[in-house]
Structures are given as C-alpha cells and as structure tokens.
Simulated assay, not measured.
Amino acid sequence: MHAPVIAGVDGSAESLAAAEWAAREAERRDRPLRLLHARNRHPRDKVGEPSPELPASFQQGTPVAAQRPPARRVLRRAEERIRGAVPGVRIAGEQVEGPATAALLTAAEQAEMLVLGSRGLSGFTGFLVGSVALAVVAQATGPVVLVRAEERAEDEHVPAEDGSASTRTGYRDVVLGLDVNDPSDEVIEFAFAAARLRQARLRVVHAWQPPSAFGLGPGDIALVKDPYRAEEWQGFLSAVLQVWRDKYPEVEVLETVVREKAATALVRAASGAGLLVVGRQLADRPVPARTGPVTHAAVHHVSCPVAVVPHH
C-alpha cells in the first residue's frame, strides 16, 4: 500500500490551508490523504497555559480544555474544505491522544510527506512558525512541507495573460537549494519528482562565497578571480545534475550559480515560486535538534510552501 500524504490539523486557518495543499499534492501523487489531529490531555493544561498547537487567535486566560474545539469538529471542518476544493481525493481522519509534536513525528515516519501550517506576518518580518511545526521540521525523518495560512490553489500557478490569478495556467517554478559540496540524492529526487508532477520548470540554485584571503594557501592565489571561480562552481553544479537530467528528461532545468549567502539567495529565488525544496542533514549521533541557518531562513521568510527533506 502506498504511503499517504498526512496533514496535521488543529482548526486554525493555517492548518486548513495546509490540509487543502496536502489534498492537491495527494491527488497529484495518486496517494490517499490522512488528516491527523492530536489532542493533548496533559495535566499541565490549565488556565493561562495554552499548548503550543493552539491557534494564536484563542483567548488567553481560559482553561485550555475549553479553548480547544472538539476533535470531531476540527476534522469535519478540514474534510469539508477539502471536499469542496479537491473532491476526488481519498480522505481519512484520525484523532490521537498525546503531545502534538510526538504524534506528528510518528506520522512523518509513515507518510509520503507531512504537511503543516505556518502563520504569515505582515510586512517584511517573515513568517511565524509555531513551536510544534519547528520541532517537527527539526526532528522528522521524512519530508515536511510548511504552508502559510493565505496559500490558495491559484498561488501554485502563473498568472493569466491579463494578470489575474488562475488555476488553468501552468505551474510556477519549483526551486531547489543545492550545495554541490554535499549534494543529497533524497533532496534532489524530491525536487525533480515535484517538478515532473507539476510539469513545471525546476530552478536549481547554488550559492557560493569566496574564501577569506587568510585561508588561501601559496598555490591558491590564482583562484582569487571570481569569474573563474563562478565558472568552476557552474561546472560542478552541471556535473551533479546531469544524472538527474537523464533520469527526468521531461523536466526543464535552469541552473543558477550566485555569489551570495545561501539563505539570502534562496529567499530571493523563491519569490514567485510554487515550491521551495531544501535539505536538512540528519545527525549520525544524538544531538539537539536543529534546522541549520539556510532552512531556518527558508521556513521563516519564504512565502511559498517550503519542503524540508531530511538526508544523511
């Protein structure tokens, strides 16, 4: 049996948007969709201490048990929204008891991908990613996609000729952030597969920065000129991608090499994209969970859905 696409839902606007995006992705992949609602009955649930999975719109100072909408209603609302937007997808809903982070991490192990919501903020301050979503992204062993609350089906598509939003036009680019010093097959394949499913262009971005003069050895002085170094990085990127171009010949690939910090380059490249794909390295030994600066910047500042793909 194929692994499902799983969406975590808690009744918030961002989780409903994530569930709808997950439904569209499940339909593209011909996978079932599983809606998961975690209900934490921890003894610390008391006045003034809302659990991290609660929407920020819930009022403070009310017993947490009273603040939470019934699980059945949460799942029903998500299913109703999906039925209206993606009527053909196969849906199953499930309620689990216990902390949301633990439940979602377990679900991620069984999923094609796990989809969660993140709340948008106004201006240029970025996006508020809840503590549960951050913890899941930092620890999950399978792909996790974060979707902002305002995400709509039209946002995945390029505008119509008159500039209006449409779902009848082609898909926006899939953007892949790739470090050619440590390329990951899992991350690259996820991005190529996503582009193929959408019949979209794949834009692969590698960012580099020149080494400090203090780090150069006696034989490295000829490498100081940036144009030559940029050409070298371009050659490395092309070599890494060639096997994937051969495997996915139907995917149009645009290679971009820029002299810039990776986080800055990716945030800019993802502007106008339909999906950004980044990697997160799994630790070989127990260490505190972390996402790394590039993934951190992506999940906080990129407005399109962000897929974080763990790899060794």
Rank of each mutant, 00 (worst) to 15 (best):
Y171I: 08
D173P: 12
R168G: 13
Y171M: 08
A160R: 08
V174I: 11
R196I: 03
D185E: 15
L178P: 01
D179F: 10
F192M: 15
N181F: 07
Y171P: 04
G177F: 11
A165Q: 14
T167R: 00
P183D: 01
P183S: 05
A165F: 03
V174Q: 00
G170F: 03
D173S: 09
G177P: 10
F192N: 01
G170A: 14
A193K: 13
T167C: 13
R196K: 13
G170V: 11
A193M: 02
S184D: 04
G163V: 13
D162K: 10
V174H: 02
V180C: 06
D179C: 11
R172I: 09
D185K: 00
S166C: 13
E186A: 15
R168E: 15
I188C: 09
A165V: 11
E161N: 13
A195I: 07
A193P: 03
D173T: 07
S164M: 09
A165I: 09
G163S: 08
A193L: 14
I188Y: 02
D179Q: 08
R172D: 07
D173F: 02
S184P: 02
E161P: 08
R168S: 15
A165C: 11
T169Q: 12
A195F: 05
R172G: 03
R196V: 03
P183Y: 04
V187W: 01
V180Q: 04
F190S: 05
V187F: 01
L197K: 00
E189Y: 05
S164L: 13
A191W: 03
D185H: 05
L176V: 10
A165K: 13
E189K: 05
D182T: 14
G163D: 07
G163T: 10
A191I: 08
E189V: 15
I188V: 15
A165L: 12
S184W: 00
A193Y: 03
L178E: 04
P183T: 08
D179I: 09
V175T: 09
E161H: 07
V174G: 00
Y171T: 03
Y171E: 00
L176H: 08
S164G: 14
L176W: 07
D173E: 15
